[in-house]
Structure formats: structure tokens, C-alpha cells
Write a protein that binds this DNA or RNA. Structure first.
Length: 862
RNA sequence: GGGCCCUUAGCUCAGGGGGAGAGCGCUUCCCUGACACGGAAGAGGUCGUUGGUUCAAAUCCAACAGGGCCCACCA
């Protein structure tokens, strides 16, 4: 084995292990042919996208889960894939075209779609190579894409089946329309933001000239499409007007005043204009009263020919123009500020229009019921559980899902129309109308919502609708790991589709993680400019340090603040682990540590102590990981490694290695402890641990190694007291300003010898002699539990400083004692507190009294 | 309008009825045989406020204050 560099260099370590792992087939579940299946699918990122820190966190959690399961012997499958991301991808390519002064319409549908495929060929590998760079152990032989042939078959099968079941239908409804993207959106693709707008009060004169009615609206431009005015049937102010008509200002249309409960007498004037084509509520009011919808905006949000003299104006220009015209013609009562929420497109941030159009829908209520029950029955469990409430609330209040999109990039809707308007929905492309056999049929131009295909991901990626071996083995998936932001978009829909088509939940547990925030706790966003590129971080600090920094903050449901300082800290840990290994390799023959087992038969006390601790910590770590409490799990492991193994055990081992009687057991212990630390850290820091594994074990790959099984070992009693005594000596030194080089003369009572004496001598830098009782004078006392150390003061001490040190100790002991005594003097406490608590207080009392007595005695001798 | 979460050391956060914790930052000392990307020691907190339950509250309950998030057909 070559000499190791004294410094951990992530860029060197992370260079080529990924290819080795892949070549060895470690990432395939077949690597553990007899293992129980444990499958998880990636939340498929946009095929033309780039990795952001949210992926960084999500993938780190995935990889920690999957690597640990693999080491535990499961047939672990992390199935990777990408999403065609309809609107998002189309927007990107359209923007590119716009740079050349072109629109998609200049190219035509076929050429445009080909252009997007070209884009995908060009950039599709970018995000997957970034996923690899982060060390994610995906099975790339099973990689899928939502538009690949197999998944497209699945999409079509689902659509047609749901249509046949009456759960997919076509309807003319008010939907959300983005005038920028020129497509329908589902309800959850609209983001509502509270904004300051205006409430315009308009005078609508009664046609018979007998008066007027005032309506209030936030969107005066839609008055062009008004076909009625509604008032509440019980509203005394307007009762006499019901059934009469008003003449619509600027337009001249005569429209009726109707009575409808929807009108809220408390709001505005209590009378509401009814625009059935441009407001969902108004549409319903219109239906109840036979008011015709008049569409006044086109697909780009520009006033159409129904807008008379305002035709051709953009909707916002029209708003201003109409307000001015109303004022000029005396119809404007007032305009007041009004806070209300405005819906915006989640892809382009444009203000969304409620828009009447023909669209395809999924009737979701029947699909939702079993998906709700499955979670109620714990067939699927959310972690943290509180997210189930969010899921239930949403699932119980669903409106039908608008699935058609008026874009070109996506799964084309498998519906054809003949000139008579018959609809033919088919698994294979038809050549004639299924109803009238007309050979003149045209396919619906629309495509499906991207989320329609991702809803099928847990089974479509396994080969469905074919009954493949993978489908049988890996469905349901074990878990799904994702952020709360896509519970509605993705999780809920996978539950619905999975149960409907597979008869079983798609995954047993839903692990919800938080958002990555910046060092100040701010949400990362491009507009704020506080985003951090995970690949940049990996290149500067290493992928392993980034992964460790992320996982160390990743408890279920909790946001993860990320500061480059934390990443630098994680790299320092890597350096520490690197050097601890280097130290071990000075005493352990490189490549000599077995991949498993190899624990010493007869460990010395110091070795037994660290082995016991290793076993305890490994057990805790496993429990916490099984609960997905990675922050706690890695926090525990990290502090064990650093504060116990590196700071104490390695230092003590130096002593034990010097002695022929203990050297062999310590060498062996050193080797297995370092090896097991590498294994335990491997899921978080795969590259570094793999590199070190090659030096320590030198056989196979740690990525394919078995998870540690640490035997039960009983450590020696009193290790804590010894550590406290050493710390006390060091504190005495620090407080007295005594150089660490200056040896102190120390007596210890009760007498210690053997390994304990050796360790105290070495780590306390003291010449130690054992005694049975306290020396008469000339010494100061360090109390460490049942141990007392007496340091000879001759010529080493500043008396004043020592008095003040002891005074401080006395004061603190007095306060502790007082607290305990008060408790024990409290009759209610003695009466009602459980016995073990009382006993504990008593022993504390004795402890503090003893300590105080020793300290006072010592103070008197100074 | 409905719901959820948070408030503990300068910062970011653990903890969760019975002696206030970690990391980073800060101060002092030390290049001691792997590591100065290191070691040793230390300073720093009436656990948001007010009530209540309890022998005992940072921890449970209520109200309030501040902060964040989600949902809703808020003309």
C-alpha cells in the first residue's frame, strides 16, 4: 500500500470510484440476489434541468437509505429516471427559439417536438451525470424517462382505462388558463399570492330608467362579458329590482338582475356582476339562471371581438381603459384599494385567467377514497405523521383534475374526433370513428399534464402494463422520499393511481423532508440570488462533505439550513477520519483488517471500553436511521467518532501499543473500530470511506460490504472517573498557567495501577504514584467521582489562583447541595415523588456533601 | 376564513416532567509520536410572555406576542 497523503483531498478521492462501483454492479439489486427487496424510485427531475440544492438533500437522503439497506443485505433498488416536464421544458425550448426570433408556430408542431427531443438528447445526460457526481447509487440499467416508449404505453393504458370507466371525461368548464403559456392548468398549478389591487364600484342603470344598481369588482375589464347582476334574495335593498334589467355600461347589452345566494350582502354594495365565461362562481350562477357566457378574452388574454371598442387591448390595458371610459361617461362610483389574492402560473408567474373552455378531466373523488383509507389504515405511513392531516384535508376536498394542456411537448391525448363530433378513445391509433365509422378523424391536439405520467412512476417504471418480474418483485416500493411541496402534485396522485391500477399502495412509507435554506434561514430562490449550486460545492469542498453537512441536518420534516461553514466543517471531519486511519495504519498492517468480524477475543480494558461504546452507538445509530432521524443518527455517530474514538481512544491506544502485553489486542481493536466507523459513515460519505477501505481492508468494495455487527463487550468500570481526573489535571494546568510540558507529581487515591495508571500518566503528563489516603499537606486535590488526584504544589503554583479556583468549586458545590437539601426537606416531594427519584436526590446529597468537605479541608490547608 | 409548525448560548439547531446540550463563532494555552482542516481548557442561557396542572415545568395545558408555511369559489 502506498503512503497516504497527510491531507484528505476530496477531489482526488472522488475521481473514479463511481465507475468502479457501477462496473462491479453494486448498484443493481441483483448484487444481493437472496436479499429481501427494498425499492425506491427517484422523484424524477426535469430531463433538461440542472441539479439544485433541493435535489442535493433529497438524493443524499435517498442514498443514505439505499446504501445502508444494501449493506444490510437487502436487494436494494434505487430506480432513477427523468421527467419530460411538459410546460417547463417547452418554455425552455421556446425561449431558445425566441433568441432566434422564432416561435414554435413558425416551426410547426412536428418540427418543434423534434426540436425538443433534440434538446433532450443534448442536455438529458447533464442532470444524470450530476446525480452521479453526488455519488447517488442508482441502478442506471433501469433508468426510465416519462416519454420513453414503455412509459408512454402505460400512460395511454391508464388514460383509456379511466375513460372506459367513466373516470376520464371531456367537459366545457371554467378552468385556470395561463395567457403566457397559452394552456390550461390544474388548480394546484396556480399559486395564490396576496396582492394589493383595487375594487372598482360601477353604476349599472336600470333599463327602465327608474334607478341604478352599483356593483363592485376587482376586474372591471370582465364587465364586457357580463350577462347578469346577482343580488341576495333576502337583501331588502334590492328585492324590488329582482327580475328587472340593467343596461350594461359601455356595451349597451340589457342584462337581468337575478336572485342568488352567492351574492353576499356584506360585501361591497351587495350586488355582484355576473361574468359566466371569466369567473368560476359566475359560471355557476349563470348556469342556475340561464345566463349565457360571453367570452371576451382570447387565449393570450387580449380582448376579442366581443369587447367592442376595447377589442385588441391586453387585459391590463383594457382594465385601465375601461375605468377611464366609465369615469368619463359617469358610471364610475369609486375605486378603492383592496387586498386580495391573485392566482399566478407556477411555471411563468403570469396572472392566471379563469377561462371557459373544452378540457379533459379526471373525476378524482372515487379514486381518492381508497387512497384516503389506505393512509388511515396505515398501509402507507407518513413520516412525520402530521403530514397525513395535510394529505387528508386535500384529498377530501378535491375538485376534478384538469389534465389536458394546450402545449405540444408531452403525451398526446389518445382521443380522435370525426366531423360529427364523436369521440374515439383508443389504445391503438384508430383509422375511423368508433361511432359512425367515418374515416375522417383528427386526433385531439392537446397533451396530458406532466403529472399524469409521474403519477404512474412507481409501477410504469417497472414495466407495467406488462406483468414483469420487476413489477412483481419491487411493487409496492418500500418508501417514497420527497419534500412536502409535492405531496399534492405527486404523492397523492401516485397513491390514487397506484391503488386503482395495482390494487395496492405504491409505497409503504412516505418520508417527508424539509427545504434547504441558506445560512440565514431564508428560502433559496433564484430571484433572491441566494441559491447554492451543489455541483459547485462538490467541486470546491467535495461531494462527501456536502452530503454529510446535509444529512447532519436532515430530520423528518425539518428544513435544512446550509452554510458553507458547515460544509467546510464536514470536510474537516473527513480530514480527521483520514488521519485517524493514517494513524491506525502505522500500527495495523495495511490491507490486513478483515471485511467483517475480526473483533479481539480477549480485549484489554481500554479496547473493551471502546468496543462496548461502538456497539452501543451502532445500535443507536441503526434505531435512529430506521426512524429516518438522520440528523440525530449522524450527530450521535459524529460525536462518538470525534470525541470518543479520536480524542480519547486513539490517545489511550498510544499507551497500550507501547506495551507488549496489550499491543496485539489494541492493534486488532484499532483496525476493527476504524473499519466499522468507515462502514457506518459509508452511506453519508461513500467516496472517502471507499478510499480508506482500500487501505485498511484492501479487499472488495465497501459499497458492497456488509453492515457491521458489533459483538456485546463489557468495558471496565470507572473509565468516566479516569477521564474526569485527566480533565481535572488539564484544567488545573490551564488555570494555573502550567505548561503541558512540565510534569506534575500526582498521587491518586484509591490507588490505581496497571492500564489506568499508565493512561493517567500519559494523558495527564504526570509522574504518578499510587497512595491509599490523602497526603497531609502541600497538595491540591482533583475530585473525579470515586477517584481523587493529589498534585504536589511545591514550586508549581500560584497560591492566589488556586484559592480562587477552589472557592469557585466550593460555591458551585454549595449551590448544588442547597438545591438538593431544599428538595429533600419538602414534605410533598418526599411524599409523592417516586422512590428512585428520592434515592437519586439522596445520593446527590451525599456526593455534594463529600465533595464540599474535601474542598473545604483543602481550602484550609492553603 | 380554516389548518399546521416554530420561538432554548452571538448564529444554526438538538433535547423534552426530576442535575441546561451540540456544531460554528469567541477567549487562553499548545506545532505533544495520525491530523494546526489539529489538541487542551474556558467564557456565554431567568429555555418568547403570562397564567394553570404537578411534590417537581425548558418539557404538559391555556391564552397572548412574534415568526414561518399550507389550504379556501377573499365579486
Amino acid at each position: 500500500m502506498h503512503e497516504m497523503n497527510p491531507t484528505y483531498e476530496p477531489e482526488a478521492v472522488e475521481a473514479d470510484w463511481y465507475e468502479r462501483w457501477e462496473a462491479a454492479g453494486v448498484f443493481r439489486p441483483e448484487y444481493r440476489p437472496d436479499g429481501e427487496p427494498f425499492a425506491v424510485v427517484i422523484p424524477p427531475p426535469n430531463v433538461t434541468g440542472v441539479l439544485h440544492m433541493g435535489h442535493g438533500l433529497n438524493h443524499t437522503i435517498h442514498d443514505v437509505v439505499i446504501r445502508r439497506k444494501r449493506m444490510q443485505g437487502y436487494a436494494a433498488l434505487w430506480l432513477p429516471g427523468t421527467d419530460h416536464a411538459g410546460i417547463a421544458t417547452q418554455n425552455v425550448v421556446e425561449r431558445e427559439l425566441a433568441n432566434e426570433g422564432l416561435t414554435r408556430h413558425d416551426l410547426g408542431r412536428e418540427a418543434f417536438v423534434e426540436q425538443v427531443w433534440e434538446w433532450r438528447r443534448k442536455y438529458g445526460a447533464r442532470i444524470t451525470s450530476q446525480i452521479r457526481r453526488m455519488g447517488s447509487s442508482c441502478d442506471w440499467t433501469r433508468e426510465r424517462f416519462t416519454m420513453d416508449e414503455g412509459l408512454s404505453v402505460a400512460v395511454r393504458e391508464v388514460f383509456v382505462t379511466l375513460y372506459e370507466e367513466g373516470l376520464v371525461y371531456r367537459g366545457n368548464r371554467i378552468i385556470n388558463w395561463c395567457p403566457r403559456c397559452e394552456t390550461a392548468l390544474s388548480d394546484i398549478e396556480v399559486e395564490h399570492v396576496e396582492e394589493l389591487g383595487t375594487l372598482t364600484h360601477i353604476r349599472y342603470p336600470l333599463t327602465d330608467g327608474s334607478g341604478e344598481i352599483v356593483v363592485a369588482t376587482t376586474r372591471p375589464e370582465t364587465m364586457l362579458g357580463d350577462t347578469g347582476v346577482a343580488v341576495h334574495p333576502d337583501d331588502e335593498r334590492y328585492r324590488h329590482m329582482i327580475g328587472r334589467t340593467v343596461t350594461l355600461p359601455l356595451v349597451g347589452r340589457e342584462i337581468p338582475i337575478v336572485a342568488d345566494d352567492w351574492a353576499d350582502p356584506e360585501f361591497g354594495s351587495g350586488a355582484v356582476k355576473v361574468t359566466p365565461a371569466h369567473d368560476a362562481n359566475d359560471f355557476e350562477v349563470g348556469q342556475r339562471h340561464g345566463l349565457e357566457p360571453v367570452v371576451v378574452l382570447d387565449t393570450r388574454g387580449v380582448v376579442n371581438e366581443n369587447g367592442g371598442r376595447f377589442a385588441g387591448l391586453d387585459r391590463f390595458e383594457a382594465r385601465t381603459a375601461i375605468q377611464q371610459a366609465l369615469e368619463k361617461e359617469g358610471f364610475l362610483v369609486k375605486v378603492e384599494d383592496h387586498r386580495h389574492s391573485v392566482g399566478r402560473c407556477y411555471r411563468c408567474d403570469s396572472v392566471v385567467e379563469p377561462y371557459l373552455s373544452d378540457q379533459w378531466f379526471v373525476a378524482v373523488t372515487d379514486l381518492a377514497r381508497p387512497a384516503i383509507d389506505a393512509v388511515k389504515d396505515d398501509e402507507n405511513v407518513f413520516i412525520p405523521k402530521r403530514w397525513e392531516n395535510t394529505y387528508f384535508h386535500w384529498m377530501e376536498n378535491l375538485r376534478d383534475w384538469t389534465i389536458s394542456r394546450q402545449i405540444w411537448w408531452g403525451h398526446r391525448i389518445p382521443a380522435w374526433y370525426c366531423p360529427d363530433g364523436h369521440i374515439t378513445v383508443s389504445r391503438i391509433d384508430p383509422t375511423s370513428c368508433a361511432t359512425c365509422a367515418s374515416p375522417t378523424i383528427a386526433q385531439d391536439p392537446d397533451v396530458l399534464d406532466t403529472w399524469f405520467s409521474s403519477a404512474l412512476f412507481p409501477f410504469s417504471t417497472l414495466g407495467w402494463p406488462e406483468q414483469t418480474a420487476d413489477l412483481a418483485r419491487y411493487y409496492p416500493n418500500a418508501v417514497l422520499i420527497t419534500g412536502f411541496d409535492i405531496i399534492f402534485f405527486w404523492v397523492a396522485r401516485m397513491m390514487k393511481m397506484g391503488i386503482h391500477f395495482m390494487g395496492e399502495v405504491p409505497f409503504r412509507q412516505t418520508i417527508i423532508h424539509g427545504l434547504v435554506r441558506d445560512a440565514n434561514g431564508e428560502k433559496m430562490s433564484k430571484s433572491k440570488g441566494n441559491t447554492i449550486d451543489p455541483i459547485d460545492v462538490a467541486n470546491e469542498y467535495g461531494a462527501d462533505p456536502l452530503r454529510l453537512a446535509l444529512i447532519q441536518a436532515a430530520n423528518p420534516g425539518q428544513d435544512v439550513p446550509l452554510d458553507m461553514e458547515w460544509v467546510a466543517g464536514a470536510r474537516r471531519f473527513g480530514n480527521k477520519l483520514w488521519n485517524a486511519t493514517r494513524f491506525a495504519l502505522r500500527h495495523v498492517e495495511p490491507g490486513s483488517v478483515p471485511a467483517d468480524g475480526g473483533y479481539p477475543e480477549d480485549p484489554g480494558p481500554v479496547d473493551a471500553w471502546i468496543l462496548q461504546r461502538l456497539g452501543e452507538v451502532a445500535a443507536d445509530f441503526d434505531t435512529l436511521c430506521d426512524e429516518y432521524r438522520f440528523s440525530d443518527a449522524f450527530g450521535r455517530l459524529y460525536s462518538f467518532a470525534w470525541s470518543e474514538v479520536f480524542d480519547w481512544y486513539l490517545e489511550m491506544a498510544k499507551t497500550m501499543l507501547d506495551q507488549s502485553s496489550s499491543a496485539n489486542a489494541t492493534r486488532q481493536t484499532l483496525g476493527v473500530v476504524i473499519r466499522d466507523l468507515l462502514k457506518l459513515f459509508h452511506p453519508a460519505m461513500p467516496y472517502l470511506t471507499e478510499e480508506l477501505w482500500q487501505h485498511v481492508v484492501g479487499d472488495g468494495l465497501i459499497a458492497g460490504a456488509d453492515w457491521p455487527v458489533v459483538p456485546r463487550v463489557d468495558g471496565p468500570d470507572g473509565m468516566g472517573d479516569i477521564q474526569d481526573l485527566i480533565a481535572g489535571i488539564r484544567r488545573f494546568r490551564a488555570e494555573q498557567g502550567i505548561s503541558p510540558r512540565q510534569p506534575l507529581t500526582l498521587k491518586v487515591a484509591p490507588a490505581v495501577d496497571g492500564w489506568a495508571a499508565d493512561v493517567i500518566t500519559k494523558l495527564g503528563a504526570a509522574d504518578l504514584s499510587a497512595i491509599d489516603t490523602a497526603p497531609e499537606s502541600g497538595h491540591t486535590r482533583i475530585v473525579a467521582g470515586s477517584l481523587q488526584g493529589f498534585i504536589a504544589l511545591d514550586g508549581v503554583i500560584d497560591l492566589e489562583a488556586e484559592r480562587s479556583r477552589i472557592d469557585k468549586a466550593i460555591m458551585s458545590a454549595e449551590q448544588d447541595l442547597l438545591k438538593v437539601e431544599r428538595k429533600l426537606a419538602n414534605a410533598a416531594f418526599m411524599d409523592k415523588a417516586p422512590d428512585d427519584i428520592v434515592a437519586k436526590e439522596r445520593s446527590k446529597q451525599a456526593e455534594f456533601e463529600g465533595l464540599l468537605a474535601k474542598l473545604r479541608e483543602q481550602r484550609n490547608t492553603l
